[in-house]
Write a protein that binds this DNA or RNA. Structure first.
Length: 563
RNA sequence: UGGGGAGUCGUCCAACGGCAGGACACGUGGCUCUGGACCACGUUAUUGGGGUUCGAAUCCCUACUCCCCAGCCA
């Protein structure tokens, strides 16, 4: 690494890595991202992905994608495919693609080895009996009656378990450690259980499946993982992790398990269980609903992988439980999109604006910058005519203090076009403003006043005759409270679900250049926010998702005035 | 009341015995053909109590608070 390279990402895990490299414990770095294919990846996984792949890249090592598929009753091929796609979309390429299930034969052999050493035994207890004898947090467990079964008998039984001679739950293989340990994970944990279930990757080959605690350290050892990074709740599994590797007599250097705090985000549920619940109970349209914190949901919403990676860098890595403000994620997104997104005009809640002194039938094309942040993005033309759409919120018959936009008698700029002054309004029988009339100043063509006069507001607009219809979906946070666990007595997290997190706007208009926009393309609709073409845009129908609004100073002023 | 972890601005992360700093958020002002972006300025923190030390967020003792663990889930 060049000496002028900036020191980046110095967290406690990277400090350990540096230490291991300097001490010579390791000469290379191998990490892994080990999802169980029982659900979709979410922003919390993205933190882990960025950490594992990031460390490997930073130290010239490698990172594997490994499916931790030890429980066929919960896993599906659909999830395997989605996880691979999501990791790639985030911008990472794995050194090796592995499946824990491909190691089952080797793991089984090590199981026999443990039996032979007297370090594991076949237990005939029922699940209830195991639980009953395990003790509690404060009381030690009691020895299992099968703990002293001769190794030869356990060996025979273990082989017959594999052969399919026993039904689910009839027997287990247990590590023989210490039923009195203060650490419940060391009270003779089950390491193999019988499951007559087809496996999405291994097929019908097995009816005997290893438990996570037994399988994971072996997977890591097989792949020569140097640093096995996981979340905090596995901290007290570490003694067993080390026990497995030691007792299976795997060669040095052993992988080292290191735990960090998982990501929590305000206004966001993160557990796979809760996300599954949202999907199964129809609270959202699916795993990729744009309100979901899943990678596929964020992608459909319009997030960029760059923004997510930047976010992962900024939140850091530590061991204390924390709750990151979702506004930081939004900030990273806005920063990225502001730099790159092409600007467009769109009117979400249209109000007719008639330019009374503009010739009927006349059309002008105005040149508008595609991205003021990036002159290289060039310009486009937008047609202008006598009848326009403006945003309903850009007109007030009686403007509140500090309202700069259109109101009777007031002059504003129509961006890149003309100054217009409101002359009158047209109302329906109920008294609602249905049309605004104005006069334009031909001397302000292109949006600049030669006499140097100023207007306080610049507004976007669309020629009614040229605008293209679209549907726009506005999203709000899925939860009403920052902490999803913050609920009244007796209620669960679903009490905090925001019932109005989706608003569908049907009568929207967008500029003609958007007519051929394709799914996942992102734009800034000027003054409104960032928007992304939804996959539902088929057959000439345009559907946009609002990714995130622009920062809105006026909204803040208005909020204050209301209070 | 067993075992394992963690306590620094509102939030997240730094500072590894030597001036508590950055980012987000928030506030004020400037600028602007997006009330965007950008720029400037500002408010706010070492859980409490002892000790060691010239000097403690950092080391020691103690108290307190919070999180995780009793799946044949991961």
């Amino acid at each position: 690494m060049a000496s002028n390279e900036p020191a980046i990402n110095q967290d406690f895990i990277r400090e350990i890595v540096v230490g291991d490299l300097e001490s010579g414990k390791h000469t290379t770095v191998v990490t892994r991202f080990p999802p169980e294919p029982n659900g979709y990846l979410h922003i919390g996984h993205a933190k882990s992905i960025c950490l594992n792949f990031g460390i490997a890249a930073q130290f010239g090592g490698q990172c594997n994608l490994r499916f931790d598929d030890t429980n066929p009753t919960k896993e599906e091929q659909e999830y395997i495919d989605a996880i691979e796609a999501d990791v790639r979309w985030l911008g990472f390429e794995w050194a090796g693609l592995y499946f824990a299930s491909d190691y089952f034969e080797q793991m089984y052999a090590w199981g026999e080895k443990l039996i032979g050493k007297g370090k594991a035994y076949v237990c005939d207890c029922t699940a209830d009996e195991v639980r009953e004898r395990r003790g509690t947090l404060t009381e030690p467990g009691r020895p299992c009656p099968h703990g002293h079964r001769p190794a030869s008998e356990s060996m025979d039984l273990f082989r017959r378990m594999r052969a399919g001679e026993f039904p689910d739950g009839a027997r287990t293989l247990r590590a023989k450690i210490d039923m009195a340990s203060g650490n419940i994970n060391m009270r003779d944990p089950v390491i193999y259980r019988i499951l007559h279930a087809p496996h999405p990757h291994a097929g019908d080959k097995w009816c005997l499946y290893p438990m996570y605690d037994y399988a994971h350290p072996l997977e890591d050892a097989i792949e020569h993982i140097t640093h096995s990074i996981c979340t905090l709740e596995f901290e007290d599994h570490r003694p067993f992790y080390d026990w497995v590797i030691d007792e299976c007599e795997l060669p040095e250097p052993h992988p080292q398990q290191i735990e960090f705090a998982r990501l929590n985000l305000t206004y966001t549920v993160m557990s796979k269980r809760k996300l599954l619940q949202l999907v199964q109970e129809g609270m959202v349209s699916g795993w990729d609903d744009p309100r979901m914190p899943t990678i596929s949901g964020l992608r459909r919403r319009g997030f960029t992988p760059e923004a997510i990676r930047d976010f992962a860098d900024r939140i850091g890595v530590a061991k204390r439980d924390s709750m990151v403000d979702v506004q930081l994620l939004e900030h990273c997104l806005r920063e990225d999109l502001n730099r790159r997104a092409l600007r467009k005009f769109a009117v979400l809640r249209p109000l007719k604006l008639v330019v009374e002194n503009y010739p009927e039938g006349q059309v002008e094309e105005f040149e508008v910058p595609n991205n003021p942040e990036d002159p290289a993005a060039g310009t486009r033309t937008v047609p202008f005519s006598r009848e326009l759409w403006i945003e309903h919120d850009d007109f007030r018959e009686t403007p509140p203090p500090k309202y700069y936009r259109l109101s009777p008698g007031n002059e504003v700029r129509l961006r890149s076009a003309y100054f217009v002054r409101c002359t009158s309004v047209v109302k329906d029988v109920a008294g609602n403003v249905v049309e605004v009339r104005c006069a334009y100043d031909p001397a302000t063509r292109g949006g600049a006043a030669l006499d140097g006069r100023k207007v306080q507001a610049t507004m976007h607009w669309l020629s009614a005759a040229h605008a293209v219809p679209a549907e726009v979906r506005l999203y709000d946070r899925l939860l009403t409270r920052p902490d999803p666990g913050d609920v009244e007595e007796g209620q669960d997290w679903k009490a905090n679900i925001n019932q109005s997190s989706l608003e569908v706007l049907g009568g929207c208009w967008v500029e003609p250049s958007l007519a051929d926009a394709k799914p996942e393309e992102r734009f800034q609709f000027e003054r409104l926010g960032y928007f992304c073409v939804d996959a539902d845009s088929v057959g000439g129908k345009l559907v946009f998702n609002r990714t995130v609004t622009l920062r809105d100073t006026w909204a803040k002023i208005e909020q204050k005035q209301k209070r």
